[in-house]
């Protein structure tokens, strides 16, 4: 079974961590993954850096620019990851923007993911209809789970369509914002979390954007299956390098 699906069946709230590949240093990718697994994280999103990350706030923008400056690129990331399954068993998801994937060739990209043992892909700017028409068959062929986003503005009708097209989990963007923008959830978010919970979707939801500490992690996972931390972890890496990853994870749960 796909590792993401197996993980989602565990009876616990999941902590997923996002980081940008090639940051802080070009060769940090594999050690960061290994450290995160050792620290007890449940899932990892490996960010493929892009020159124009539209949906990201300043922290991830800066890490992406730095990673590209360090020399990160798609083929190199695949090279770095090629033996990753010899050392870790944690679910791995690639997250990025669609243009680099398109240039690599969608099928070639998916094949490499499959060979490496990547379990899923998040491409926020690959829209639902294009995915269904053109790429779903390729994702399926390589046993890759495609993760879609929903936001507080997404209509119920569209949430249902996304739920139908999903086969793993739904990435629930916490508020109308780019990554990293908020610290703390207000009444509006609580209402949104409850509204989504009541829809009884077939796919569990994992909340992302604006989760930075134990408080926001708990608030986000009160209803949802898990939560994703990105910008706050990247800030930690900026300040501490890759030496104290476990300390950071311990502050979350």
């Amino acid at each position: 079974m796909n590792r993401i699906k197996a993980k989602l069946q565990e009876d616990k709230k999941l902590l997923s961590i996002y980081f940008t590949a090639g940051y802080p240093k070009l060769d940090d990718t594999v050690p960061i993954i290994q450290e995160l697994e050792r620290a007890g994280v449940d899932m990892i999103e490996i960010g493929l850096p892009f020159s124009d990350p539209l949906a990201d706030g300043p922290t991830i923008q800066k890490s992406s620019t730095a990673a590209l400056g360090n020399g990160m690129h798609t083929e190199l990331l695949f090279e770095q990851l090629k033996d990753i399954r010899k050392t870790v068993s944690i679910p791995l998801i690639l997250m990025g923007y669609f243009n680099p994937m398109l240039q690599y060739g969608v099928e070639a990209f998916c094949r490499r993911c499959f060979e490496i043992g990547i379990d899923g892909i998040i491409m926020p700017d690959l829209p639902l209809d294009v995915y269904k028409e053109t790429y779903e068959a390729i994702y399926k062929k390589y046993n890759l789970i495609n993760v879609f986003l929903i936001t507080p503005q997404t209509s119920e009708e569209r949430i249902r369509a996304i739920d139908n097209a999903s086969d793993g989990f739904i990435y629930m963007v916490s508020s109308a914002s780019t990554t990293g923008a908020k610290d703390g959830f207000g009444a509006e978010q609580q209402e949104y979390f409850q509204r989504i919970a009541k829809l009884n979707l077939k796919n569990p939801q994992i909340v992302g954007f604006g989760i930075s500490n134990a408080n926001t992690f708990q608030a986000a996972t009160a209803k949802a299956k898990g939560a994703i931390i990105g910008s706050a972890f990247i800030k930690h890496l900026t300040q501490n390098g890759i030496g104290k990853i476990e300390n950071f994870i311990k502050t979350i749960r």
Binding site: S51, D52, L54, T74, E75, N99, P100, L102, Q103, Y104
Partner: peptide, 18 residues
């Protein structure tokens, strides 16, 4: 490639960076 939400011609690296 894709720039600002549109599939079109754009100047980019081999790797798809704009």
């Amino acid at each position: 490639g894709i720039i600002h939400g549109s599939k079109t011609l754009l100047m980019q690296t081999e790797d798809g960076q704009i």
